[in-house]
Amino acid sequence: MAKQIIVGIADMKMARREGVLITYALGSCIGIALYDPMINLGALIHIMLPEQGTMADKNLYKYADTGIRETVRKMTAFGAVKNRMRAKIAGGAKMFETKGSQGLGNIGDRNAQNVKKMLREQGIRLVGEDTGANYARTMSIDASDGKVTIKTFGRPEITM
């Protein structure tokens, strides 16, 4: 079994040719797997919120906008090319079905919208998506071929 590299919350890791990047239990957060098949460079980001806004936060990977931008910048520095890069995303769930107007905002959905908007802005093709619903997902990407696996509680594993 290939070496596993764990990506924490509000975090990003890259791997080239070998190794599996994995992030556990994405709830309303989103995992974004970026892959350049030509050079077998993969990255996995675990963002928590849609945009940085006015927060003077040093942690770029906490937000969809700054997280994607920074990861693309780093991958490019390692020789990846945007128009070869492919994205697969998972997460953005609404864990609690809150009833009535005083419920929580649907952060998961806003996260998914903003991740897709950022990918469009960066000109990166989205080729796989498993978002929404009400359950958490563990996501991994194999750096050798860019294959993404999604594990959930009580549902069959998804490969994309």
């Binding site: 556990y24 994405l26 709830g27 309303s28 928590m48 769930a93 864990m95 958490a136 509680f153």
Partner: peptide, 15 residues
């Protein structure tokens, strides 16, 4: 919710 602990704790974290 009955689900993964990590996903559940991400709710207050994100909120």
């Amino acid at each position: 919710a009955v689900n993964m602990l990590g996903g559940i704790l991400s709710v207050p974290m994100a909120e």
